[in-house]
Amino acid sequence: MKLDPENILKVRALTKSVQLEDKTLELLQPLDLNVNVGDTLAIVGSSGSGKTTLLSLLAGLDLPSSGEVYLKSNALHQFNEEQRSQVRANHVGFIFQQFLLINSLTALENVMLPAELANVSDAQQRGKDLLAQVGLSERADHYPSQLSGGEQQRVAIARAFISQPDILFADEPTGNLDSKTGQHIADLLFELNKKQGTTLVLVTHDQKLASRCQRQVEMDSGVLTEKITQPEVSVDIVTVEKVG
């Protein structure tokens, strides 16, 4: 499918359902979504609304039950796990609510990890630079168990940006943090995002964090609805219709 060069992410008629013992659970109703290069998009919704499920599909962490997902012209819905992994390595950064740092690596080593996977030669220098940017230069040799939650998330942010991804997915990045720390993390995230010009897709239930994004979409029981927040920003209308 030929994409508008402005699109970095395009979704068509995406659904996800899971088979339980006696019934089928529809996690996502058919939805469409376009995200342009450089956009910051917040996916909001209450717990269990399907926002993390949607994020997983957009990032290529999972396969849809039906529909199409294109990330930088890569048809993720047709790729196997290996191919999707490659897409992630080349184009995607991640930040998770649980930080997901490797406990046996130091802060610096955790940050360097994506760059090493991509065989970047100056991974160590880049890692140090990014740790400095997130204010953790002096904690470079410390292990995750020696860092607070906020510090761990800062390391995770640094890790997410080291390979200069085209698109960054953040799943409740401040979910495990207190409001003050969360605020700092959010500031850091947006600051780095702006510096690198990365497209940001953010899942959150925090309205304040969501409002910092250019766009918001809302998930409610698997149904996606666009929330009009900034009239001056061009919006690709997301029409949500039940198919079938």
């Binding site: 992994s85 490659q86 992630r88 390595a89 740092l101 490797i102 990890l113 996977l117």
Partner: peptide, 16 residues
Amino acid sequence: ERELAILRTLGAKGSL
């Protein structure tokens, strides 16, 4: 397993 999950998510090849 945890490390494998993280590395996989970050884009490590299966062969690696």
